[in-house]
Design a protein around this nucleic acid. Structure first.
Length: 273
DNA sequence: AACAAGACCTGCATGC
DNA sequence: TGCATGCAGGTCTTGT
């Protein structure tokens, strides 16, 4: 479900409502997400206030007093929402933080590919999930030269490269397809055969599509919602993702779906070279 | 080292 | 209507 824009939309929606609130009680309601909750010291967050809400790639990073950070990943189907305290428990509600405002921050994740754990804030740089992530595409140092450098020595299709978080952080299947369409690059083109100018175009297309998606509140295909439960609108603006057979918005030829490295891959055979 | 493929889960759309 | 099949936004591990 959620890629970088969705997690950023979630972060922005939760930040003003969460920062300053104190956790009164942590309730683990399921045996496991991707990793067992019981192994993770989430209960140690009780009594602490949220002091900041950040993001790295698709990870939401909630800093609390006392140098602890709550790390949340939504996997494919996760939804993190702030609801009134008396709201009935949902099916697949795996984790709940009861706050001093009387509200409850709850994590629901039917497929349980998500992740939630607490870690020392000072140790995040060496956290196994975060340490090897690549450049943030919305950071000032991101550009085509940076992309080309990260691809040096690699072979493989450019789309697989975009999906590899160790090279670029936060890009998933939807935005990889959309950025390649905007840049006019075939998803299966080898990274070894992309000229510098095309890397620049790709970097520009990535920034453009990620920023537009954030402004639209993210893409909601099935599950995504922000911290208040609001769904995104960017799905109507997708050019190729999920649009098999529909006309390419640029040239009118039908959008094609293929499988690349096991992932559904959409492109326009006319516009992308 | 880098890549492909399988595994982890549930829910939903589709087709018979 | 019911059942089987295939597909899904993401990592992580294993094998080549």
């Amino acid at each position: 479900m959620p890629e970088l824009p969705e997690v950023e939309v979630l972060r922005r929606s939760l930040e003003p409502r969460l920062v300053g609130r104190r956790v009164e009680r942590v309730e683990g309601l399921a045996p496991a997400l991707r990793e067992p909750l019981a192994r993770r010291p989430l209960a140690a967050l009780a009594g602490r206030r949220f002091v900041a809400l950040g993001r790295r790639a698709k990870y939401l990073l909630a800093d609390l007093e006392g140098g602890r950070t709550l790390v949340v990943h939504l996997g494919m189907s996760g939804r993190l929402t702030l609801v009134p305290g008396g709201s009935p428990r949902e099916v697949h509600e795996h984790l709940a933080f009861h706050l001093d405002s009387g509200e409850r921050l709850r994590l629901r994740d039917p497929r349980r590919f998500g992740l939630a754990y607490a870690a020392p804030t000072a140790a995040l740089a060496s956290d196994p999930h975060l340490a090897h992530l690549g450049v943030e595409p919305l950071s000032p140092e991101f550009d085509g030269a940076r992309l080309a450098a990260a691809a040096a020595g690699r072979r493989g299709p450019v789309k697989s490269f975009l999906l590899d978080g160790r090279a670029i952080a936060g890009v998933g299947n939807i935005y990889a397809c959309e950025a390649l369409f905007r840049a006019g690059i075939r998803p299966d083109r080898s990274v070894a055969r992309l000229a510098p100018a095309r890397w620049e175009r790709l970097a520009g297309a990535l920034v453009e599509v990620l920023e537009e998606a954030i402004r639209a509140g993210g893409t909601t295909l099935n599950d995504f919602a922000d911290g208040a439960g609001r769904e995104g609108l960017f799905q109507v603006a997708l050019s190729v993702y999920g649009r098999t057979g529909e006309p390419c918005p640029r040239c009118g030829r039908p959008v094609r779906r293929r499988e690349l490295a096991g992932r559904g891959t959409y492109d326009c055979p006319g516009c992308q070279r």
